[in-house]
Amino acid sequence: MKAIDTLQKLSIRKSLIDIKAYNFLVIAFLLILLMVLIFTSICVGSSSIEITDVFKALFKDGPLTSEYKIINYVRIPRTLSAILAGSGLAISGLILQSVLNNALASPTIIGVNSGAGLFTALATVFFPANFNIMPLAAFFGAFLATIVVYFVARKTGASRMTIILAGVAVSSLIGAITDTVLIVFPDTVINRTSFIIGGLSGVTMNRLLVPGIIIFISMIVTLIFSYDLNVLSLGDQTSKSLGLNVDRTRFLFIILSSLLAGSVISFAGLLGFIGLIVPHLSRLIVGYDNRILIPVSVLIGSSFALFCDILARTLFAPYEIPVGIIMSFLGSPFFIYLLLNRKRRHV
């Protein structure tokens, strides 16, 4: 926690130094941290591989040794999936916290989790043997639930509050439908549980390709419109009087947020907590400007997910703990710490 205090002192002093230089330093530091974590993530795991063998597997088209297979077919996809999941959820949460001006907002609020929950349940009912359909079902479920939430809210003006209320109502309804499906078809519970708990084990490059592309494009679009997100946080009336098309901008961002979270759910299941905590931590370090907050959240989100995943794989190796559990164990006390100090920090 001392590191955070030092960072905070630095950020208070940053008006005295050059803000740009400070931001550059932060990004440089986070990039180095991410690089170190990526390297660690590829090097460590339940089977120990010598570093020289790791390099051989990475840079040479060597023989198909078991080391080569582990590095290329297990650890690299897994590292990539942690980066995508961490950054995707962080930006999804950041967008929602800004758009809804609500510090507690996370993808759950726009129905992403409940939608994915229902569609995966339906998928196991109708295609019990086909496990490949699960990611697709999760993605479309998440996306469709968001659309329903938005259009219900729109009927009453699509203000920040109506979106949150519509989210709660629609999620609750979808949850009831899901429970009904699970009671009528009790066999589906087991198939689905492992998917819903979430985790990054067994992810392949093939399964990452489409979500990866969607996450990447959504992030670029978010970055392009990041200044509009700043203006939107002034409130509906003020941003409208500044010439921002409030409804269209809010709709765009909610869709982006849903695409990001839905894509992550499709390969990692429900790992919601990053979306709540990373934006808060990033704001603490670089302030409120989304133009810098977005890249910083991407870096912190990826690093946090990677760090948790490394722990999940190594703490009790060869057994593995679901990464979501590690995230909650590390994230919750930290988040409580942030809450206790939020007055002082304008978080």
Partner: peptide, 14 residues
Amino acid sequence: VISYLPQNRDIPNI
């Protein structure tokens, strides 16, 4: 051409 300052505003972090 037209600006409008509303009465009730959030106090943004800015």
